[in-house]
Nucleic acid binder design. Structure first.
Length: 428
RNA sequence: GGAGAGAUGGCCGAGUCGGCUGAAGGCGCUCGCCUGCUAAGCGAGUGUAGGGGGUAAACCUCUACCGAGGGUUCGAAUCCCUCUCUCUCCGCCA
């Protein structure tokens, strides 16, 4: 959520920002609502002041055994007026908030203006595409022939976009989760947390999923409960409505959670394999920082996420999302795209963003700074470190061998009983 | 699921028959003083959000907030209703 005062004072900048984001949102209604809101506020507050003064007067009269009935009658009338204005104000304020909640974040000045993903500049690459002396296969073929990925039964149990893992695949998934968490906590200094996988509407609003992206979420029937689409939601909301001490910052949390996404609007897209599932595992990195350090922390977060792929030895590239391709809440986003030889393409495996104070304002996350008598909003950041299912499929595709077996990266072997190669029937 | 208790400022904790209570008292914290150092002591200060004024700062002023929402009343932390959460006991259960 943007600061109304900021919008009011920088209206042209905000309009330009919306255009750069390919949004045609008209800000005029917001300015109107803001003006109405403030007008009503001035009016009702003045009336409340009068009532407060009169109430004291009535108390005094009563104490002195004098008659205050005419003043009481006046105040009764004024009370009705106040009630009427208050109710009107409530409506206006509600509309005003809804509008504000639907305005995306302002991109950082270092974000290139662009229309769509074709305008995203590449920042760097790491490693190289592996060379095969045979035709590399996509992971769904590898997984099925090894008997470790069961798409048919996943669909039978739940439906499309659900997969049953067997034996070595489930062990590999588990190994990846542990490896990622261990790396981030022991080497990168993150604090591990295990949050609820279900959250309420307030939390979803805090990070920006609601009200705008309701259709992308799974809701529990009859409850104010939603399945989390990412650990970003519960973890960022850990500190909602809190005032943090400056000395605590930056806070860095790492969390493993499953993620649930309805994938509405992507029918027919990525229907094969593990790429786009309704349920997948992810290790998420979340940071709370002082405003002036958030961009340094974004670089660090990105490097922390990249470290996982480097340790695994998988080629990837980092791209910077242009204004037209960025997420709603983000001010700047880097995507890490992993190389998938079986599909001859790069696919997003991590998205690292600085939200600046956009989420902090929604979720009301502040900190107190020495020498200042006002609280300030923190900056929040997060990034996948990494999407586990996609990491698993990247391993299958990058480390496959002609005989259909898959070599397990060295760093994961301690987590898998020193297994070196996944073979058909292994652990299943 | 049944029965009961509770929710007040960073923390603990008081609020009598509704009326200068944004809220006593204590702890903590900040600044200053004092003292070889530390500790102790003394003095002052110390919530959040929004609106208006003021040069965007300092500051002044108003409004709201004692779990959330609604009601009664001229006036509610205090009375009534609904909801949420926490705790205790019983039942059930991984």
């Amino acid at each position: 959520m943007l600061d109304v005062k900021f919008v009011r004072d920088n209206i042209e900048l905000v309009r330009r920002m919306l255009a750069n984001r390919q949004s045609d949102l008209d800000l005029e209604p917001l300015l109107q609502l803001d003006e109405t809101r403030r007008r009503l506020l001035i009016d009702v507050e003045e009336k409340k002041h009068r009532r407060n003064v009169a109430s004291e007067e009535i108390a005094r009269l009563k104490k002195d055994k004098k008659d205050g009935s005419s003043l009481v009658a006046q105040m009764k009338e004024l009370g009705l007026e106040i009630k009427a204005i208050d109710s009107r104000l409530g409506e206006v304020e509600h509309e005003f908030m809804e509008f504000l909640l639907n305005i995306p974040n302002v991109p950082h000045e270092s974000v290139p203006v662009g229309k769509d993903e074709k305008d995203n500049p590449q920042i760097r690459t790491w490693g190289q595409k592996p060379v095969f002396d045979f035709e590399p296969r996509p992971h769904w073929e590898i997984g099925e022939s090894l008997g470790i990925l069961d798409f048919e039964r996943g669909a039978k149990i739940a439906g499309a976009r659900f997969t049953l893992y067997w034996g070595a695949a489930s062990a590999l998934e588990r190994a990846l989760i542990c490896f990622m968490l261990d790396t981030h906590t022991r080497r990168h200094g993150y604090t591990e947390v295990l949050p609820p996988f279900i959250v309420n509407s307030a939390s979803m609003r805090g990070t920006g999923q609601l009200p705008k992206f309701k259709d992308d979420l799974f809701k529990l029937d009859g409850w104010d409960y939603w399945l989390i689409p990412t650990a970003e939601v519960p973890v960022t909301n850990i500190h909602s409505a809190e005032i943090l001490e400056e000395a605590m910052l930056p806070l860095s949390y790492a969390a493993y959670t499953p993620c649930f996404r309805s994938e509405a609007g992507s029918h027919g897209k990525d229907t094969r394999g593990l790429i786009r599932q309704h349920q997948f595992n992810k290790v998420e990195l979340v940071k709370f920082t002082r405003p002036e350090q958030s961009y340094d922390q974004l670089e660090l977060l990105l490097a922390n996420a990249e470290a996982i792929l480097r340790e695994l030895g998988i080629h990837y590239r980092v791209i910077l999302l242009c204004t037209g391709d960025m997420g709603f809440s983000s001010a700047k986003t880097y995507d890490i795209e992993v190389w998938l030889p079986g599909q001859n393409t790069y696919r997003e495996i991590s998205s690292c963003s600085n939200f600046e104070d956009f989420q902090a304002r929604r979720a009301n996350i502040r900190f107190r700074q020495k020498g200042r008598n006002r609280t300030q909003l923190v900056h929040t950041l997060n990034g996948s470190g990494l999407a586990v299912g996609r990491t698993l499929l990247a391993i299958l595709e990058n480390f496959q061998r002609e005989d259909g077996t898959v070599v397990i990266p060295e760093v994961l072997r301690p987590y898998m009983g020193n297994m070196k190669v996944i073979q058909r029937g292994a652990m299943s």
